[in-house]
């Protein structure tokens, strides 16, 4: 029965150690808890009380809480937490730009790299622009606060300026990029390279191999 906990708990332990090393322990635990809590609560309620089992722990009305249900909920929770911690650790410790540039070094085309980074970087810009436009619309009497309906109605007039504004931006940006030889075909020499030591490569290979093994073991029914 403990077998179901071993893998996820090991992953959680490793992630926590890495989070401490990366100096993001507090942020990551808080974010993971916040993200998984709603799912966790529903999973616990549903599985504890509805899962069929022989060991009844307590009864509430027509619902039995079974040991099997608790076990299932527990296993799901550790898995959820393991998943959210690993994703969180990745997001918090990896500069998206560094990731994309490293992909370019490994053969991604400069154009694709540009699109990827520009998309990631566009989000904060869009948010900022929306805030500015929202302020100016409010200054002209537009209601973007209050009830949900009022706020939704208030948002509509913002959509146009935000999107049109970014379209004209795109036009000027593409001209400006053209002026910096963006359309020149061929590879570029990137400015910096990610430190990548042999032990890191070894760990990556090992992780990849483990993943393949785990999938094979799962399919053949040995796990």
């Amino acid at each position: 029965m403990l077998g179901g906990y071993l893998g996820p708990t090991a992953i959680i332990a490793v992630m926590l150690v890495l989070a401490v090393r990366g100096g993001v322990l507090g942020t990551i635990v808080r974010a993971s808890l916040l993200l998984t809590l709603p799912i966790a609560i529903s999973v616990v309620l549903v599985s504890v009380f509805t899962r069929a089992g022989t060991t009844v722990l307590l009864q509430i009305g027509p619902f039995d809480a079974t040991l099997e249900g608790v076990d299932f909920a527990g296993q799901t929770l550790v898995r959820l937490f393991a998943i959210s911690l690993s994703i969180g650790l990745f997001v918090l410790t990896t500069d998206p730009r560094a990731l994309v540039f490293d992909l370019e070094r490994r053969g991604l085309s400069p154009r694709a790299a540009f699109v990827a980074v520009a998309t990631i970087e566009a989000v904060p810009t869009l948010v900022e622009r929306a805030a500015v436009i929202g302020e100016s619309q409010r200054a002209r009497g537009l209601d973007t606060e209050g009830s949900l309906r009022a706020r939704l109605r208030g948002l509509l007039p913002l959509v146009g300026p935000v999107i049109l504004g970014s379209l004209t931006d795109v036009e000027e940006r593409s001209l400006a990029l053209e002026s910096r030889a963006f359309s020149r075909p061929g590879r570029r020499h990137l400015l910096w390279s990610m430190p990548d030591e042999s032990w890191q490569r070894a760990v990556r290979w090992a992780l990849g191999a483990t993943l393949v093994l785990a999938i094979v073991a799962r399919i053949t029914g040995r796990l």
Partner: peptide
């Protein structure tokens, strides 16, 4: 080379 009036829109946005 050509430059335009708005410094923000001329930045590549990827650096």
């Amino acid at each position: 080379g050509i430059g335009f009036q708005n410094p923000i829109t001329q930045l590549s946005g990827v650096t």
